[in-house]
């Protein structure tokens, strides 16, 4: 793998720091008037998701990390692993619970999502920004309450719980923003 110097650090570049794959978020050139040049860098540790702030002498370099993001179709889970398929090659990959993390809450079979591989092994899974899921449990809807005011918890087929307006009923499909975990709208009936 190539190495990258601080002046090549751009947002999105994947590097290895402290043996962990990281993605550069921000790189600021800083130089005291009478001192050497440094770079203050923000990186996301791709394993833990934590953001690190590190300072490097300008010109220092880090090894690139073999990290690729692939769009894949989610197939199913056997409880231990989650299975994904590359829609082009039909090749299947299994990701463990650690890599999937809380993303399982937004995974519906046949939906596409993004799988991040590190050295060929799934490191993390990112759901689509919007997913449509069925409500399996919620209090009965209140008639006529279609305009505003109030919401109630609703449990989705994946196990996720989101707040929905009072008029939404069990069995309906709703659209959810996976980044905020918030209800967006009723989905058109499929």
């Amino acid at each position: 793998m190539a190495t990258y110097s601080t002046n090549e650090f751009r947002p999105g570049l994947k590097v290895i720091l402290d043996n962990e794959p990281c993605s550069i978020l921000d790189n600021e050139f800083v130089k005291p008037g009478k001192g050497q040049a440094f770079n203050r860098v923000k990186l996301r540790n791709l394993t833990s998701g934590r953001v690190w702030e590190r300072t490097f002498r300008s010109g220092e370099s880090l090894e690139g990390a073999d990290v690729v993001d692939l769009t894949m179709e989610y197939l199913y889970t056997d409880g231990e692993f989650y299975y994904f398929m590359d829609p082009n090659s039909f090749e299947q990959h299994q990701a463990d619970i650690k890599a999937v993390g809380d993303t399982y809450l937004w995974l519906k079979e046949q939906d596409t999502c993004e799988v991040t591989f590190y050295n060929g092994i799934p490191l993390s899974v990112t759901p689509a920004n919007f997913v449509e899921l069925e409500i399996v449990e919620t209090d009965p809807g209140l008639k006529g309450d279609t305009a505003q005011g109030g919401n109630k918890p609703a449990k989705l087929s994946t196990g996720a719980v989101v707040k929905v307006p009072l008029f939404i009923t069990r069995g309906e499909i709703i659209k959810v923003d996976t980044r905020s975990g918030e209800y967006v709208a009723r989905a058109s009936k499929s």
């Binding site: 720091l17 001192g35 050497q36 690190w52 590190r54 300072t55 490097f56 002498r57 220092e60």
Partner: peptide, 12 residues
């Protein structure tokens, strides 16, 4: 959070 090495001058 400083990573790497510098020369042996206190000022650095």
């Amino acid at each position: 959070g400083f990573c790497g090495d510098l020369d042996e001058h206190r000022g650095s």
